[in-house]
Amino acid sequence: MAEREQIRKPAPNERENEAAGNPSASERGEELKAELDDLLDEIDEVLETNAEDFVKSYIQKGGQ
């Protein structure tokens, strides 16, 4: 099926001016990656000890 031609998508440079022009974007990416690695290092201490039982027993009544 044809793409809708009438949808005007802004040119990439038009809409990415803020995010791409932000020099801290890649630094923030590195920071996030380091934080994720740290979290993955310590996560086993936080995670439920018996994942299978925990998942099985997590039963909720339906609501809205």
Binding site: M1, A2, E3, R4, I7, R8, K9, P10, R15
Partner: peptide, 14 residues
């Protein structure tokens, strides 16, 4: 025709 979710959102933002 078809459209992606991003395309709809770009148009709503504009």
């Amino acid at each position: 025709s078809t459209i992606t979710a991003l395309e709809v959102q770009w148009e709503l933002l504009d």
